[in-house]
Design a protein around this nucleic acid. Structure first.
Length: 892
RNA sequence: GGGCGGUUGGCGCAGUUGGUAGCGCACCACUUUGACAUAGUGGGGGCCACUGGUUCGAGUCCAGUACCGCCCACCA
């Protein structure tokens, strides 16, 4: 007996091998210039993050690919690291400060940034350590961070290059502003949500007293910033008013009525108030008409105490102000109507505050020209999305690309490397802090206070981590990377930006394939969110079911199926059991192989079952390899599962027991142990990319070829490939026949309640010589697996009385029945069976009787259906005669 | 408003070029036979969301409808 316990204990095995792998530093990067290369850049998690289901799923898929390629002998780089996550991290540390009663301004910029560094040094690698539990084989010796010195150099080079070439400019325009985070946001950092609000219809009286124009707005508090009322130039209702003057309600400021085709005649009243400082579209209208752009709401979202805002509203918070304004309008009888209104409202992605469009000075990247080559590489499929439908997500965004606001009013991040000379007002960008103005040599320079959008730095991730802008060996060997695997929500936020920056700076694509994995939702189909408290913690699941079971589930989801999958704990339970099954199969194999030294298979001495399992196994290896090549992780997982459980455990191991006993009895050295070793050892390697822990543990204890003696781990063993010389259709066919016989006997036994503990006699008549030979080859299997004794196999003979029988192919299987038969039960089951057969038969006959079908359908189709009909007819008569047997037993 | 996914036995899903509907879990029955009861064996259960169309034949192709979900979007 093996010393191993019968139940698989994942925690023990995982700890053991994690320790071993790290002690031997097996994850350090090694490069052999002779070998081909494969590389993946891990999407860097935020330093503030905890491992969630998405990370775990994505980490598993990447690790499967990495381990697979490593076993194939590639130079493999899996670049890990973290993102400094500007807003998130600053928020976390500010929250900490708040507990101490302080704000970041109390500390000042320098001390605050130092404080964030402290935080990051303590907690910043937490998520990477959580990744360890999953068994990911990062190159742990190459951990990168977006604020490493080398990485910062890359950012500075990128910025300055874009600046010098005129792609970066400063603009004063309306941007998304978060009044809580006190920073601007890019369009992609704003989440739009359907929100219940109101549409207010407000009268703007004409200055000449001849009536009024009614405008529609959702934000009446912004009206003090109005500079015009716009109508569509071709709108007959309003044509006469163009050029006239209306009076702004409450403050009575005169506003011109202008014409602009931006106005939608269908919406609201067809008259639109123009507030350039607080609405992006109005800003554009304002530009076109050369209008002023007074601000009336400040960066905290309060009404500004200025000349435009009536005193009573000064300093009022924007939503409070809205109420007040509406009340005032009502009392002046200028509020025509208040409609309930559902509209998309922008929220800050980080803190869920309603976005305030605010006029401010920000840095932008001019995108149009940069996007062009990035569009081309996807259109030409030099960068391929998997599944392909996501290419259109990317392309739709890129076709309609708008300039990218890259400045953030934060302290944590990469400070924008632009300095302004206080002496001559020269503005320029520098990779290193300048000591003097290049224009006037003055030393009185001031750096821009803002930092860069976090995504500006992550856009450079795949090449900045490899040492760009230096021409490093790593870049030469591993760039472009092979695959990028990520979630669809950051296709535009991140993937698109990596593509255009790589093309711009490195002159090549950053990766060849982009895998977009599904999103894991809660069991009831909701979005998992930490703040809602409905998120499942993968670490808890790993504790409960083991890392390998979790990984197997992730692999089984694949990337080509549904775009969303629901979390199901029973899946994990299923795969935990699968690991247990594998473990116990391993125990049996290890027991059987005690003292065994691997030997080459003697082909001529293989039994039918040996040939069959070798055929199946080599087909499995072919499927696994093909599947991985095509990113069909789900197919690979299912193929491994079915082979292991059905073919190997349920059939071959049971047969192996028979063969091992025979070999022992006869003293002949059979092939069973060789086959067991070959298949199981190979299976461990084939399964290793998905289930690294359990396969390592079992593999280490298996007798192995001396070729593997020097290896520290299964992870360096060659990935098994099919040997087509083991493909064997003949064995497959014969074995299928035996399986059908065994199942038929089992079925008869249970139908007639033959006790499982007793042996049953069986007689098989088989006129076909070939089939009879197969039967004789497999007679021991039949005896053991169907508990048959004695077994008679003959070309033909007397039909035994009181026997149930089943027709299979050219054979008839008889099981003489003992006296203990439950007649009623047996009859009802037979009748049920008869009905099913008749139903099928009817369908088949209908098709066959159709003359059109016979004329038009392919010949093989007709023939196979004909064969099916014959088979069904045989079965029908079999059932019928069994029913007769029952009647006879009743009579007697 | 635009785009994309999904709708197949109680639940979760497969269904390759159209040719008598499969798998896992759950369910029922039997079985503790020396890898595993976290198991084995046998079994029951579906008019493939709906409506039309193409075809000898549609879960599979085409058109439309409904519901669920996701992404994108400057209609106040």
């Amino acid at each position: 007996m093996s010393e191993v316990r019968s139940a698989y204990n994942p925690a023990e095995v995982e700890q053991k091998w994690t320790r071993q792998w790290f002690e031997l530093a097996l994850f350090d990067l090694t490069v052999d210039p002779e070998k081909p290369s494969f590389s993946i850049a891990l999407p860097p998690p935020n330093i503030t993050g905890d491992l969630h289901m998405g990370h775990a799923l994505n980490g598993t898929l990447q690790d499967v690919l990495i381990r697979w390629k490593r076993m194939q002998g590639y130079n493999v780089l899996w670049q890990p690291g973290t993102d400094h996550a500007g807003i998130s991290t600053q928020m976390v540390v500010e929250r900490e400060l708040k507990k101490e009663g302080k704000s970041r301004r109390d500390l000042g910029r320098e001390a605050f940034v130092a404080r964030v560094w402290e935080w990051r040094n303590e907690y910043g690698n937490r998520i990477l350590n959580q990744y360890k539990r999953l068994g990911v084989s990062f190159n742990w010796d190459r951990l990168a961070f977006t604020m490493d010195d080398g990485y910062v150099r890359a950012i500075m080079r990128a910025f300055v290059t874009l600046f010098k070439e005129g792609f970066i400019y400063r603009g004063n325009r309306v941007t998304n502003w978060c009044p809580r985070c006190l920073t601007s946001l890019s369009d992609l950092e704003v989440e739009h949500e359907e929100t219940r609000g109101h549409l207010y219809l407000i009268k703007y009286p004409l200055a000449d007293g001849s009536g009024a124009l009614t405008v529609a707005t959702t934000r009446p508090e912004s009206m003090f910033g109005d500079v015009a009322v716009a109508v569509h130039p071709d709108d007959p209702r309003y044509k006469q008013y163009i050029g006239k003057t209306v009076l702004l309600p409450i403050s009575r400021r005169p506003l011109p009525v202008i014409a602009d085709s931006y106005v939608d005649r269908e919406f609201g009243t067809g008259a639109l108030k123009i507030t350039p400082a607080h609405d992006a579209n109005d800003w554009e209208v304002g530009q076109r008409h050369d209008l002023p752009m007074p601000a009336v709401i400040d960066e905290h979202g309060r009404m500004i105490a200025c000349e435009h805002v009536p005193v009573q509203f000064h300093e009022l918070e924007r939503f409070a102000a809205r109420k007040e304004v509406v009340g005032e309008l009502a009392s002046e009888h200028l509020l025509v109507e208040t409609q309930d209104y559902l509209h998309g409202l922008g929220y800050c992605e980080r803190c869920h505050t309603v976005i305030e469009p605010l006029l401010s000075e920000q840095w932008y990247v001019k995108m149009k020209e940069l996007a062009e080559p990035a569009i081309k590489v996807v259109e030409e499929e030099r960068v391929v999305f998997v599944p392909p439908r996501y290419a259109s997500t990317y392309l739709d965004w890129m076709y309609n690309i708008r300039d990218w606001c890259i400045s953030r009013q934060l302290w944590w991040g990469h400070r924008i490397p632009v300095w302004t000379c206080r002496h001559c007002s020269n503005v320029d960008a520098f990779e290193k802090a300048p000591t003097a103005c290049p224009q006037c040599a003055s030393a009185d320079l001031e750096q821009d206070p803002d930092v860069l959008d976090t995504w500006f730095s992550s856009a450079l991730w795949p090449f900045a981590t490899l040492g760009w802008p230096e021409k490093t060996e790593e870049l030469k060997i591993f760039y472009p990377t092979s695959v990028l695997s990520t979630a669809r929500e950051i296709i535009n936020l991140w993937v698109a930006r990596m593509i255009f920056t790589s093309l711009k700076f490195v002159g090549t694509i950053p990766f060849k394939h982009v895998l977009i994995h599904p999103v894991i939702q809660t069991a009831d189909g909701k979005r998992m969110s930490k703040s809602k408290g409905n998120a499942i913690d993968p670490l808890v699941m790993i504790d409960k079911y083991g890392a390998d079971a979790n990984r197997f589930w992730f692999a089984s989801l694949g990337v080509k199926g549904d775009q969303d999958v629901r979390f199901r704990e029973d899946r994990l339970e299923e795969y935990r059991r699968f690991a247990n099954k594998l473990w116990n199969a391993g125990r049996f194999v290890l027991d059987s192989l005690e003292g065994f030294a691997p030997k080459a298979i003697e082909r001529d001495e293989l039994t039918l079952a040996d040939r069959w399992i070798l055929n199946r196994f080599n087909h499995l290896l072919q499927d696994v390899h093909e599947g991985l090549r095509n990113y069909d992780f789900d197919d690979v997982a299912h193929a491994l599962y079915d082979f292991t459980w059905d073919h190997f455990c349920d059939w071959y191991l049971e047969i192996a027991k028979v063969q091992l006993a025979q070999e022992q009895a006869t003293g002949a050295e059979g092939q069973t142990r060789r086959v067991l070793q070959m298949v199981f050892e190979g299976l461990m390697r084939a399964m290793h990319p998905i289930m690294p822990f359990i396969t390592e543990d079992l593999w280490q204890r298996l007798p192995k070829s001396p070729l593997f003696a020097e290896l520290d781990s299964i992870m360096f063993a060659p990935f098994p490939r099919e040997d087509q010389s083991f493909f064997d259709d003949d064995a497959e066919q014969k074995m299928t026949l035996l399986v059908r016989i065994i199942r038929a006997v089992r079925n008869i036994r249970q139908t007639y309640n033959v006790p499982a503990s007793s042996e049953a006699e069986a007689i098989i008549y088989c006129l076909c010589d070939d089939e009879r030979k197969s039967l004789i080859l497999g007679q021991e299997y039949i005896k053991r697996l169907a508990r048959v004794s004695p077994l008679t196999i003959a070309p033909d003979g007397i039909v035994p009385p009181m026997a149930a029988w089943e027709a299979i192919s050219s054979m008839k299987v008889y099981v003489p029945l003992a006296s203990l038969i439950d007649v009623d039960k047996s009859r009802s089951r037979l009748v049920q069976r008869q009905e099913a057969i008749q139903k099928d038969l009817l369908k088949v006959r209908q098709i066959l009787e159709n003359e059109e079908f016979r004329r038009r359908a392919p010949k093989e189709k007709v023939e196979s259906l004909e064969a099916q009909r014959q088979d069904l007819e045989r079965q029908a008569s079999s059932v019928e005669s069994q029913l007769k047997v029952l009647e006879m037993s009743e009579v007697s």
